[in-house]
């Protein structure tokens, strides 16, 4: 046993553990922060896509309304659909 301790690393284990944990935690935190930033960007993009879809829908329904205006009497085109 004493021989084993004699061969043991110069640095005590409890002191080294802190640094090893630190290094791996830094890596993990950077990964999580990166994923977080990407999530935020994804959400912005999704919001913009939703907005575009809404605008497209509005434009389509307006076009449909205009179309039905020309062919039918102007009586609530929504109910036709």
């Amino acid at each position: 046993m004493t021989v084993l301790f004699g061969l043991a690393p110069a640095l005590p284990l409890h002191a080294a553990g802190k640094y090893v944990a630190g290094a791996y935690v830094v890596f993990a935190v950077m990964l999580v922060v990166y994923v977080g930033i990407m999530t935020r960007r994804l959400r912005t993009n999704q919001r913009e896509l939703a907005e575009l879809r809404r605008l497209l829908d509005e434009r389509d329904s307006a076009a449909a309304a205009a179309h039905s205006d020309a062919s039918q009497p102007p009586n609530e085109p929504e109910q036709v659909a």
Partner: peptide, 19 residues
């Protein structure tokens, strides 16, 4: 196993050098 010279701290090697 632990490194003979550096001990436990050497485990940083496995993240630092690949990075």
């Amino acid at each position: 196993p632990f490194d003979a010279n550096q001990g436990f701290i050497q485990k940083i090697f496995y993240i630092h050098v690949p990075l």
